[in-house]
Simulated scan of single mutants.
Amino acid sequence: MAVEVGTGVTANASALLVNSIVRSFPATYDRKAPVGGATGNATIGFQHSNFAPTGTSVGDGSVTSLTSINSDPKFVGSGTDPYRLLPGSPSIDRANPAAGGLAVDLLGATRPRDGDADGTARSDQGAYEYQPPAPDLGSGPTAPESGGTTDSGTTPAPGGTEPPAPADTLAPKLTSLRLGKGLTRRRGGTIRFSLSEAARVELRFTRGKRTVTLRVNGIAGANTVKVAKRKLGAAAWRLTVVATDAAGNRASMARRVTVRR
């Protein structure tokens, strides 16, 4: 991040970075301003971010940091989105809890999520929201032998029924949204994505007031959806993919796609 006030300039210059991760750069900031009361100041602020506090700071002004950290964010480091966070990342649930922020991350996943399992959903630092795995509900207590007792020390009632299974409230994971080998008006193309479970999938291509919708039944794992030739005009479109599982839980992702001639 660079902020500079030129010689003889009386106006101030400032920049503020919030809820972000800046790593692996030789210097994080470059702040320069003249010295003297008649010239402007240059200021840089970091809030609720993860960055290495290294850089150049010269002249009137300052570099400030509020509730930020300097720690390895533990990126995944490979695949289509290498800057996603691994479990245990110090950037999980570390964004400003008072800031509204975006409702979805760079992949369209819902945020905030309770990534550190402390009972409070709070956005993560950076462009990706860590999606915690489904809780392990286990197999439940073992049925006692005849005349025995349950784990709670009480004798089970004869003819009793098993308690109902907990309601499914976990949204399917929708990841790896990408194009096949190009998308053209004359030949069509393919859209690929992955699902953590079977779900109904709606693909919406939007350009201005026009929307083209495709609906498929997605499977757990890798999915490929064919876009028929001449289905889309040669232009830039916004693609939104929404996956809805059998319990009605939804996940979505969005990206811009360009259809060639």
Rank of each mutant, 00 (worst) to 15 (best):
T155I: 03
L203A: 05
R204M: 09
L102I: 01
A143Q: 00
G182E: 09
G100K: 08
P135A: 09
V104D: 02
A167P: 06
A199C: 12
A109E: 06
R187C: 00
P135E: 08
V104C: 00
R187D: 10
P141H: 02
T169K: 15
G126I: 02
S176A: 14
R210H: 12
T169M: 14
D116R: 03
T206A: 15
A109I: 01
L195R: 03
A165T: 03
G188K: 04
A198R: 06
L179Y: 05
D136P: 08
P163K: 02
P144C: 04
R178D: 14
A98H: 06
K209W: 07
P163F: 02
G101T: 01
K173R: 12
F193N: 07
T149I: 14
T154M: 04
P133V: 08
Y130R: 09
R111Q: 06
P135N: 05
L174W: 08
R178K: 15
L177M: 09
P97N: 07
R94L: 10
R200K: 10
Y130H: 15
D116C: 00
A103T: 10
P166H: 03
R178S: 15
A99F: 11
T206V: 14
S139A: 14
L106A: 12
L106V: 03
G208S: 05
I92Q: 13
T169S: 15
G148D: 13
T149M: 12
A127V: 10
R210A: 14
R185V: 09
G153D: 02
T155G: 00
R111A: 01
K181T: 09
A157F: 05
D118A: 08
E145N: 14
S152E: 13
G160Q: 09
G147W: 15
Q131V: 13
A95W: 02
G108W: 15
R204C: 07
T169C: 13
A165Y: 00
G160W: 03
S123K: 01
L177H: 03
A167M: 11
L102Q: 10
K173S: 13
A165D: 09
I92A: 12
G101N: 05
T184K: 12
D124K: 01
A134F: 06
P144W: 05
A198N: 06
P141K: 00
L102N: 09
L170V: 03
A198E: 12
L195N: 02
P141R: 00
P112A: 12
R94Q: 12
D116E: 00
P132K: 06
L179E: 07
R192E: 14
T150Y: 03
D105S: 10
G159S: 04
G147C: 14
A95S: 09
L195H: 07
P166G: 03
A117G: 08
L177R: 04
G188T: 05
A103P: 04
V201A: 11
P158L: 13
G160F: 06
